[in-house]
Design a protein around this nucleic acid. Structure first.
Lengths: 329, 329
DNA sequence: TTGTAGGCGTTATCAG
DNA sequence: CTGATAACGCCTACAA
């Protein structure tokens, strides 16, 4: 069913049908009504593909996440998809992986799809190869990075001050009388690097010595958190608080602390980051730094659409994280 | 950058370029090499939109889920997207909501996008309006329903025997000496209806009387599970086991039981469904019916692609669920 | 082995 | 107010 078919039935030209479909002015009411009627009758649905070929727009947004199964990415994907759809766009979601070449591959795919804009979710996309790929092949469409930024004219960044946030976590722990604070992280992401910086600065503020800074590397899983925590606490019995780079690691940590028979938060206090539902499920419930991921995602989509519609926006905006206190502190 | 641009540079016609791009036979090696070289040099990327217009295929798959934030939907989205991408397809994911008209709206959107195939994730899509919508407007492309089925020639169904699964859960509880088993569910989905049937049949097998069947309705949240469980146990103190229609509800249930000071599983045993990560986070860890959601999703995508590539498949296949036993039983 | 011409379903331009 | 006609970028007979 094409506009030609409709045109034939209606006894008008295809252009007229097109005009009716696109609500153009200057059509006789009669004609418009008749065409509309037939459109409905035949349940005509325009072909976005053909339409896009001439309007040079797909109304498609490419959304890249490392792994949608990360709780915060999931929430983001939900919020963003809903928002974009309301604005008339569809979302192509790609799990781009952690590997730089995988990411570039994903970028190339959305490029081939001629998406109207791109959302890069997560700090992981802030690396050299991705940057090069974007400069070379994606400089003609708007890109918004949620939790990241690249200094290019078509790239926007929405960031969260995780640095300040973690510093506040350290403050909170000191205020609770904790003096031996460790940090357990999946450290390979730029976002984690920020958090680590915040941790170190936080400690320094409280006159910590360089040698007392304890940063443990692990992977981003329940098991990773468990193992790292267990090893840490067996070796360094004076530790009385641990901050984790992500909730899921913290949850593993809580389980380890419990298994060691240590009291939370009395013997060991714990703080996670992301404020996911995991924190409400685990017992004791987890104090977590809410890094406003969904706010960020919404801001990001908003900026993207605004740019697409010709509105201006600052290249870079910053959101403020917030500690949600629960039983582990 | 179009094939015409490339053609001009290479000193050949556009069709030759097209042939090279699509790896057609009968091209002089020299020509092919030269064109390929230029293609690379100019970093040419074909326009899928234009291509699809003539091949009548978008290489786009529409994926409808009720809400991608449901843990099992998330896993599915991940697995499916990865799989489809490897096969050369992109995924348009829509959160279709629980409302029938929202669902139909979503269906109309993917229709307009001219997707090559559709994946309907979850039993919720098994309703009259969706069925009508599919029959009227989506009869020309393959549709695979994960955890659902509609009897149409272009619709496949991949199902899990949740009925048998829940029956097995009842058996397990009886074998542990439990005799007063309740069921708490968000009952509005066809899938829940299956589970409820399994619960009832399971009880009947063990000579339960109709009047002792206890089914409590709640919503699909932590809080819902908590409240329903609390109320149930305060009122009926003889209950010694509860099955929940979803893990997240069961997790709320565990918290309620603990808050009431009752021992799990000694006083009250608990079983969830979905085998999500929540079950590993909560303490005591949750026994759960693994309904093989990701297997199902993979099967579903596989069938979809096979159909698209002209291969045959049975209209309907069934997977077997499996109890993963942990501390709550 | 290669080029020409036509068409996929729309929208946009320009006459009328 | 409406209708031809030409793009959009690509693929595919058919012809050469």
């Amino acid at each position: 069913m094409t506009i030609y078919d409709i045109a034939k039935v209606a006894g008008v030209s295809a252009s007229t049908v097109s005009r009716v479909i696109n609500n153009k002015e200057n059509i006789k009411k009669e004609t418009r009504d008749k065409v509309k009627q037939i459109l409905r009758e035949y349940n005509y649905i325009p072909n976005d593909q053909a339409r896009g070929l001439v309007t040079r727009s797909t109304k498609l947004i490419g959304i890249l996440v490392v792994d949608i199964r990360n709780a915060h990415h999931t929430d983001i994907a939900f919020v963003v998809e809903k928002f974009l759809r309301k604005k008339g766009y569809c979302s192509i979601i790609l799990n781009a992986g952690e590997d730089e070449s995988e990411m570039c591959e994903a970028i190339r795919i959305i490029e081939q799809r001629r998406v109207d804009g791109v959302l890069l979710i997560g700090s992981m996309f802030q690396n050299k190869r991705v940057k090069t790929e974007i400069i070379q092949n994606l400089s003609h469409i708007p890109i918004v990075m949620a939790n990241g930024y690249i200094d290019r004219s078509n790239v926007y960044g929405v960031l969260v001050d995780e640095y300040e946030g973690v510093k506040k976590c350290v403050d909170l722990l000191f205020s609770k009388g904790k003096n031996n604070i460790a940090f357990i992280a999946k450290s390979t992401t730029p976002s984690s690097q920020e958090k680590i910086k915040g941790y170190i600065e936080g400690l320094k503020k409280h006159n910590y010595l360089e040698k007392d800074i304890i940063i443990i590397e692990t992977n981003n899983t329940l098991k990773g958190g468990y193992k790292a925590t267990q090893e840490l606490l067996m070796e360094k019995k004076h530790i009385d608080a641990i901050i984790y780079s992500e909730d899921i690691i913290a949850v593993g940590g809580i389980q380890a602390v419990k298994d060691l028979g240590l009291c939370i938060p009395k013997k060991v206090a714990i703080i996670g980051v992301d404020n996911t539902i995991y924190g409400q499920i685990i017992s004791p419930s987890l104090t977590s730094l809410d890094n406003k991921m969904t706010d960020m995602a919404l801001q990001a989509s908003n900026i993207l659409i605004d740019d697409l519609e010709g509105m201006n926006h600052p290249e870079k905006i910053m959101l403020f994280s917030e500690i949600v206190e629960r039983e582990t502190t």
